[in-house]
Simulated assay, not measured.
Amino acid sequence: MGKQFDALDERQIAFIEKQHMFFTGTAAPEGKVNISPKGMDSLRVLGPNRIIWRNFTGSGNETAGHLALNDRMTLMWCSFTKQPMIMRTYGTAKTIREGDADWNELSAHFPPQLGMRQIYDMHINMVQTSCGYAVPFFEHAGDRDTLKHWADDKGEDAIRTYWSERNAQTLDGFPTGFEDK
């Protein structure tokens, strides 16, 4: 049976820190719901009700477009190891881009990496845990370095061009903030 909490506690934060990946979910008021797996060194818990995560260049940019229309976000972790558990954080989030007032402060939480497109700043209003008994076991074999090599090969100018050409709209045609970049 699932349990709900108003905020993350130390045990739940430790659980997050052990996971190699998480999933993010957003939706505009209408259109497609987006669920994306995330990895790399991209998430920080800043307090019991605040999480930030950096978003790298990708084939789409659904989260930014959805948050411009509807600020709800869900993050989910599930253990693929001995401790069975699924945990979700529900809340609201905003998109932070380079040049925004909070960019320098929030990006300082991460090592520099080419291709960092946005940072999402989430305020948590509910945490829910559930058993995870049906989640299979998987072993973590390591992080992929494909995206890092792709970004390094492209370079900063080509990545910015990619954002304006390939990341300016969601699948449903909503703007993502890169239309005029």
Rank of each mutant, 00 (worst) to 15 (best):
A134R: 14
I52L: 15
N70E: 06
D180A: 09
Q12E: 14
E105G: 10
F137S: 12
M116W: 10
G60M: 08
T57I: 14
T74F: 04
R88G: 11
H149T: 08
R166I: 09
R166D: 07
Q12G: 08
K181C: 03
R160H: 15
L46W: 08
Y133C: 12
W103K: 00
S130Y: 00
L106R: 10
A68T: 06
T63N: 04
I35T: 11
F5V: 04
M122S: 03
G2M: 15
M126D: 05
D9I: 02
K181I: 14
R54W: 14
P84F: 05
L67C: 03
R88T: 01
T95G: 02
G142N: 11
T95C: 11
A151N: 11
S130P: 05
G60H: 12
A134I: 15
I13L: 07
G132I: 11
S79E: 09
A158K: 12
G177H: 13
T92F: 13
T92N: 12
H123I: 11
C131R: 07
E105T: 15
E30C: 04
G60E: 13
V127L: 01
F174E: 02
G65W: 00
A27R: 08
F23Q: 04
A108E: 00
A93E: 00
L67D: 01
Q4C: 08
D153I: 01
D180W: 11
Q118H: 05
L69V: 00
G47D: 03
S79D: 05
I35R: 04
L114A: 10
T57K: 03
R117A: 04
D100S: 00
D180R: 15
L67Y: 00
